[in-house]
Design a protein around this nucleic acid. Structure first.
Length: 170
DNA sequence: CGCAGAATAT
DNA sequence: GATATTCTGC
């Protein structure tokens, strides 16, 4: 458990973020080799997108608007209108999102209902427009009157999830 | 050939 | 467990 994986994912930017804090230039390409040398730096690629609750909301809102069954990465991407962010990133997250539904619903069906990880109910699905540059505006209105059946996503992470200038390095 | 989905790897 | 990457099907 020495776990030195002090990733510290949440504290992306809290208060001040004026001075380019991270400069990712580390391209450690050291593959593992069966020599006596330590080369375990692999796996330490911190460049993963942190899906914050705010980002989640835009994702969820887009999915809800399109329809869970019709929501495809490209459309979600377009509706979210987040400058960076690739289709793969949305697709990857979409998998997780869908996986959660498939596991939550058929499992309990409607018996236990109370989750285990303390999912907090989000009653505010607004589309706050993150960044915009082109005239791509999305007028989406969200209501919280979904069928109470799909109540699962989101995990209110402490209080770091203040939304603002989403700036992940690319 | 691009996109979406699942499978797999990190 | 979460996200990225890879592979396959369409």
């Amino acid at each position: 458990m020495a776990a030195s994986s002090a990733t510290d994912p949440a504290t992306t930017r809290t208060a001040s973020e004026g001075s380019t804090p991270l400069e990712n230039e580390v391209r450690d390409d050291d593959m593992e080799h069966s020599n006596g040398e330590i080369t375990d730096i692999r796996g330490l690629r911190e460049c993963r997108l942190s899906w914050t609750a705010q980002l989640h909301r835009q994702f969820i809102a887009a999915v809800k608007h399109l329809g869970e069954d019709k929501a495809v990465p490209k459309k979600i991407l377009g509706i979210m209108n987040v400058k960076h962010l690739t289709r793969e990133q949305v697709a990857s997250h979409l998998q997780k999102y869908r996986m959660r539904q498939k596991k939550s619903i058929p499992t309990a069906s409607r018996s236990k209902c109370f989750d285990q990880d303390g999912c907090m109910e989000i009653t505010d699905y607004s589309l706050p427009k993150d960044d915009l540059s082109s005239g791509s505006e999305c007028m989406l209105e969200e209501r919280k009157d979904y069928p109470s059946e799909d109540l699962q996503d989101l995990q209110w992470d402490s209080d770091k999830q203040e939304y603002g200038p989403c700036l992940w390095n690319f």
